[in-house]
Design a protein around this nucleic acid. Structure first.
Lengths: 137, 137
DNA sequence: CTAGTTGCAAATCATTTGCACTTGC
DNA sequence: GCAAGTGCAAATGATTTGCAACTAG
């Protein structure tokens, strides 16, 4: 059994061809953040007969199962990212769409302090920065 | 001249009925963050003959003019907020929806340093924290 | 076998746009 | 008066869904 199949099984999902293929794409893509359309295009390139509707369905199931994380960046469409990495934040190029990931201990700590000062019990947080990347500026 | 008219004038926008009405709604609404649909519904309630297309056009103009700030929250649609206050971030209660605004000079500075280290020229950034507020926890 | 899954196309939702008709200045 | 602004409806782009055919267990 492939590692993808095992992951699906562990997540409680039936092992089907679309799910395995989409999981492979998410895991093997050099870009960490893919839109549903990106995944679909990659499937077409691999000559898989999988509809865009199925791509959305599978990605949503993966999200529910905790296999991927969905982000709503500015600019209209959602992007999906494999959820096995540690917490990190994002810096998005508004021109070419490139996404850089970073984590900063100081910011994390300060966020917690601020939440504490308001009496908030944090469940999640995200910091997104937008701008021009070195290549686009 | 009403204060709304003056604000439009200052922003370099022609004073038209849709713009004045929409600005009034944004300023008088108890909720700080409104979707285009929210604004449209409020206009209908006030029996104004303003189309949803115009609402989107006006909100986009307001954004360009710096009168409002657009946020992309989870769930697909954008929300708009009057931009009279300085930059701040948001802490949202996932239970009651309450939104606390805060600004932290240390975090702001650190964000800029991180962007610099990546060679990014920032145009915008936002930090959203989610959790339970004191009343809900 | 049969409940879950998929492909496809049609439907939906948020948002944008083309165009003929107003309106602000 | 005329460019800018608006209403409306049709177009768009992203995502969802209904349904008959298909497949994993």
């Amino acid at each position: 059994m492939t590692s993808e199949s095992q992951e699906l099984k562990d997540a409680g999902l039936k092992i089907t061809l679309p799910r395995v293929k989409i999981l492979q794409i998410l895991e093997s893509s050099p870009a960490h953040h893919l839109s549903a359309e990106d995944v679909y295009k990659q499937l077409l390139k691999n000559e898989e007969e999988i509809g865009i509707g199925t791509v959305y369905r599978v990605l949503t199931q993966f999200e529910d199962a905790g296999l991927v994380k969905r982000h709503h960046f500015e600019g209209g469409h959602s992007v999906f990212e494999i959820a096995k990495t540690d917490h990190h934040d994002h810096m998005v190029c508004v021109k070419c769409g490139r996404v850089e990931e970073f984590a900063d201990e100081g910011i994390e700590r300060r966020q917690q302090e601020i939440a504490d000062s308001f009496g908030f019990q944090l469940t999640d947080h995200n910091l997104n920065m937008y701008g021009l990347c070195p290549r686009c500026r």
